[in-house]
């Protein structure tokens, strides 16, 4: 996890070899070698993207059939309040849930790595365990806990005669989903951080101890800088995960149909567009926009995260 720095440029010949007439022949040989890869790459990666872009340039109507509309679908997405609402919601989710989740994961990783924790193997497994639970099952489970009528929340209300706010109400449902996602992924991120912490040479700690550094100082001066790469990669994964939020709201929708709209997240929006609304073209457009946006945000985070390392 620490090998994230780009491949070094060292070793490249200072000047290109002199051109010869045989260049053309050699290039064909080269293509021959990478052809198997290129075929698979084109088929598996490029073709679906190209097809989505192709789809996004058309519009199919129940009355009037299919017509080429150029970039109309993109224009429509930019003007679509549902799209912006969905995007705004996952952005809010990203800004609040991701720091909380990564913060907890980091704290746990540091605690386990500190070597002062009793039963650290147990904690490591126990905290990682939720990640092994399929998201669908996890969401169902939390859905039952959240139920204010027959769920745990309902039981607490009845037993203690209190009235907790309904976690599945429109105001709280996003926070409830954030809680599920945090529960699911803290262990996963903890493991990334922990693996990165393990490869820090112990001599650094010994040196710091001799210098009289406190534990806190060791964390800020040694551990955190050393796992910067892992932090960045976990952040990027989480950003992608947030923008792709789908399973949790989609399943909770059955329990809270009025709190989770069909355009709750961009993914849910594309799903309902294409499967309930037969608007495949517009769905492809939204998917492409979201893909681009995710790439841009992830790239910016990576640039920012890696810059200081250089």
């Amino acid at each position: 996890m620490t090998t994230l720095s780009p491949p070094t440029m060292a070793g490249r010949p200072a000047a290109p070899p002199p051109r010869k007439r045989s260049t053309r022949r050699r290039s064909w040989v080269g293509w021959g070698f990478i052809a198997p890869f290129m075929v698979v790459f084109a088929l598996v990666f490029l073709a679906p993207i190209a097809y989505s872009i192709y789809l996004s340039l058309f519009r199919e109507q129940m009355v009037g059939g299919t017509s080429f509309v150029g970039l109309d679908n993109y224009q429509r997405a930019f003007d679509d309040p549902k799209f912006w609402e969905a995007l705004g919601r996952v952005s809010l989710f990203l800004v609040i849930q991701v720091p909380i989740m990564l913060g907890i994961a980091l704290l746990v990783a540091l605690a386990i790595d500190s070597g002062r924790l009793y039963g650290k193997n147990f904690f490591r497994i126990a905290i990682f365990m939720p990640y092994a639970v399929p998201a669908v099952v996890a969401t169902l489970m939390w859905g039952f806990i959240y139920g204010s009528r027959f769920g745990l929340v309902g039981n607490i209300n009845d037993t203690f005669n209190v009235s907790l706010p309904n976690p599945l109400s429109p105001d709280l449902v996003l926070a409830s989903i954030g809680n599920i996602v945090t529960w699911e992924f803290v262990g996963y991120n903890m493991l990334i951080f922990y693996a990165a912490l393990r490869v820090i040479p112990h001599s650094l700690y010994e040196a710091a101890e001799i210098d009289g550094a406190s534990q806190l100082r060791m964390i800020t001066a040694i551990k955190l800088p050393a796992i910067r790469g892992a932090l960045v990669i976990a952040t990027i994964f989480s950003i992608i995960g947030s923008f792709q939020l789908f399973n949790e709201p989609s399943i909770l929708q059955n329990l809270a149909p009025n709190a989770i709209t069909t355009y709750f997240t961009p993914n849910l929006f594309t799903y309902s567009l294409s499967f309930s609304g037969q608007q495949h073209n517009y769905a492809a457009t939204v998917a492409i926009l979201m893909g681009l946006l995710t790439m841009v945000v992830a790239y910016v985070v990576q640039l920012r995260g890696m810059r200081k390392e250089a």
């Binding site: 129940m62 109400s169 429109p170 149909p257 009025n258 709190a259 709209t261 069909t262 355009y263 309902s272 309930s276 609304g277 037969q278």
Partner: peptide, 21 residues
């Protein structure tokens, strides 16, 4: 409606608000 399937699918987005707000 000729597109009742879609219309029903967005009932909770719209009319559903009456049940929770």
């Amino acid at each position: 409606l000729p597109f009742q399937v879609y219309a029903n699918s967005i009932f909770n987005d719209t009319a559903g608000k009456a049940y929770v707000s």
